Amino acid sequence: MKILSDALLESYRNQPGIDIQTALQQLDETFVRSDSFNFYTSIAVITSSKIEGEPMEVDSYIKHKIQQIEYLPELTQKPNDLFQAYIYAKENRLTKEHFSQAHQILTEHLLPEHWRGIYRQNAMVVMEHNTGRIQFEAAPAHLVQGEMDKLWDDIDKLLRCDLSVEETFYYASFIHLIFVCIHPFNDGNGRAGRLLEKWFLSDKLGTMAWYIQSERHYYQHVDAYYRNLNRLGIFYEQLDFTKAEPFLKMLPRALDN
């Protein structure tokens, strides 16, 4: 592996609490119906968007998508773009090219066209949207292309491998973490990173992965989400990924939802 690490995998496997395999089976039996995708994707989209400071309330957005209730465009445009990106991801395999297209979709009302799906060329400081506090400094611009190439090489390798359920969750979280630390785009990185995590899960586990309420879990525990990112350090080139375990353990806990 070029940028991901298995150094924490053994400890991750031995974590007490959630039996991922059993929880997935219960999810498949309880929630997955032909009409469920729009509902659970609505929850995923609006909670992921609210982590980034979008003002629309969760219940209102669900009414908008499920009951076709009309709201002001400035409230719905960016969440709806993200919703379309989730549909695109569900209908396409995870590749570098498809992910770039998904970023173009989710940033239609966020970035000018020439920056959609294109890596940034400037420095990037990552801030918590609710407080405005600086969280960390993302990868320097001259490293972004190379770091993302490493990440996609690792993702492609993992997609070709047979992974256990625990390994799949571990690497999905690690992909999410590395992507957010690189922060490769001018905007939309948080939303894209959470979609990338879910997309990887779906390619490895199938359709049921789209019903895992990971985005909702991160939103409900947003302080821990940012705190666990902060544990790694402030500057990208000095990040300590041996401290990543608290972040990696958040995804399985989303199965409790």
Rank of each mutant, 00 (worst) to 15 (best):
I3N: 05
L4M: 07
S5K: 12
E10A: 13
E10Q: 15
I18A: 02
I20M: 02
I20D: 01
T22V: 07
Q25R: 13
T30S: 11
T30G: 04
F31W: 12
R33L: 07
F37E: 10
N38R: 11
F39K: 11
A44L: 02
V45F: 05
I46M: 09
K50N: 15
K50R: 15
E54W: 04
M56P: 00
M56F: 10
S60M: 09
Y61P: 08
H64S: 11
E70R: 13
Y71R: 15
Y71G: 12
L72E: 15
L75E: 08
N80I: 03
A85I: 09
K90R: 15
N92G: 10
F99Y: 13
Q104N: 05
L106I: 03
E108G: 00
H109W: 10
P112E: 12
H114T: 04
A123F: 02
V126A: 04
M127F: 06
M127Y: 15
F136S: 06
P140Y: 02
H142G: 03
H142W: 09
L143M: 13
V144L: 08
V144F: 09
Q145H: 09
G146R: 10
E147A: 14
E147F: 00
D149W: 06
L151K: 13
D154I: 01
K157F: 15
L159R: 13
R160P: 01
R160K: 14
S164I: 06
E166F: 00
S173P: 00
S173L: 05
S173H: 02
I178H: 15
F179Y: 14
A192W: 04
R194K: 13
F200N: 03
L201N: 09
S202Q: 13
L205C: 03
T207Y: 02
M208I: 05
Q213E: 15
H217V: 03
H217L: 05
H217I: 00
Y218R: 15
Y219H: 12
H221Y: 08
R227D: 14
R227L: 10
R227F: 08
L229Q: 15
L232V: 10
G233I: 01
Q238W: 08
E245R: 14
E245A: 11
E245G: 05
P246A: 04
K249A: 06
K249Y: 06
M250K: 02
R253M: 08
R253G: 06
